[in-house]
Nucleic acid binder design. Structure first.
Ligand SMILES: [Mn+2]
Ligand SMILES: [Mn+2]
Ligand SMILES: [Zn+2]
Ligand SMILES: [Zn+2]
Lengths: 137, 137
DNA sequence: TTCTTGGTGCAACATTGTTGCATTTGATAC
DNA sequence: GTATCAAATGCAACAATGTTGCACCAAGAA
């Protein structure tokens, strides 16, 4: 599904910023940070517009915002069912754990879930294999 | 358990900053942000020292850092078993869901979990009762 | 083509966390 | 108690990320 189709699917106007953000995310194929996305978007990039566009698309459900930790925020197209994410403390790579689905959670009476996040931090397979234990503090 | 005992329990030096952070968290009784904690700490507050002290105590396992979203970070004493947290999009209150425990998760081979977070966002019981539906956008 | 709503670009600002370095303090040994 | 030394603190400067106000522009509908 291309950028224009995704936008009309979510009842959003087509606009240059939105289209280039979506294309950047499609090329990157993995959840990406603002700097990573802006690199793909080339010149004529405005940070304010980025944040406003991202927010619109997040609220529309087109894009997923994954907050691993303060200073570690990644964005991804919401093209797969919700799933947990693994963040490697060593190599900073974010891995989609598409087999781990959040919830459903049994909440106290009256609480309404809008969205849930599962973030697992640790060492990824590559780092736990290649790293001598002493260097992991 | 008082502040000094908690520190020695975790093999950390007693220091004025650490003690007053712990006391603030004990008084607040709920996960609190840096501004909330610093208010409780009164005058003679230094933000750099706060962040260095918090980091030390988080790494020692004395304090839990709960990242709800960028610009929404809360800290709490790690005095209960790990549990999920509910963040109300309307009133911004963070509720401990002590009955919901994260994981254990079955990860791909080689992945090692160090810590996991479950954040559920939506409307709390108070807000879903009192709020007319139209005002929830 | 015109109209209108909403998107964009820019400047200024806000919040939260970090780094370097000189000074002070807590814990231990004497 | 006093000396010692590593570690904690305080301050200034900086960095990263997101927000707000406002003038201008562009997409989509009439
Ligand atoms: Mn994912
Ligand atoms: Mn809690
Ligand atoms: Zn890794
Ligand atoms: Zn609420």
């Amino acid at each position: 599904m291309n950028a224009a189709e995704l936008l009309s699917h979510h009842h959003l106007k087509k606009s240059s910023a939105r289209i280039s953000i979506i294309r950047a995310l499609q090329e990157l194929e993995t959840p990406a940070s603002e700097p990573e996305i802006s690199n793909k978007m080339g010149i004529h990039y405005d940070r304010t517009t980025f944040y406003r566009s991202i927010q619109t698309m997040v609220e529309a459900g087109l894009i997923r915002k994954i907050v691993v930790d303060k200073l570690v925020v990644r964005y991804a197209l919401r093209d797969k069912p919700d799933h947990a994410h693994f963040y490697c403390d060593n190599c900073q790579q974010l891995t989609c754990l598409e087999d781990i689905h959040p919830g459903p959670y049994r909440l106290p009476a009256g609480f309404q879930t809008r969205e849930s996040d599962v973030i697992i931090r640790g060492l990824c397979n590559s780092c736990s294999n290649h790293l001598p234990i002493e260097t992991i503090h």
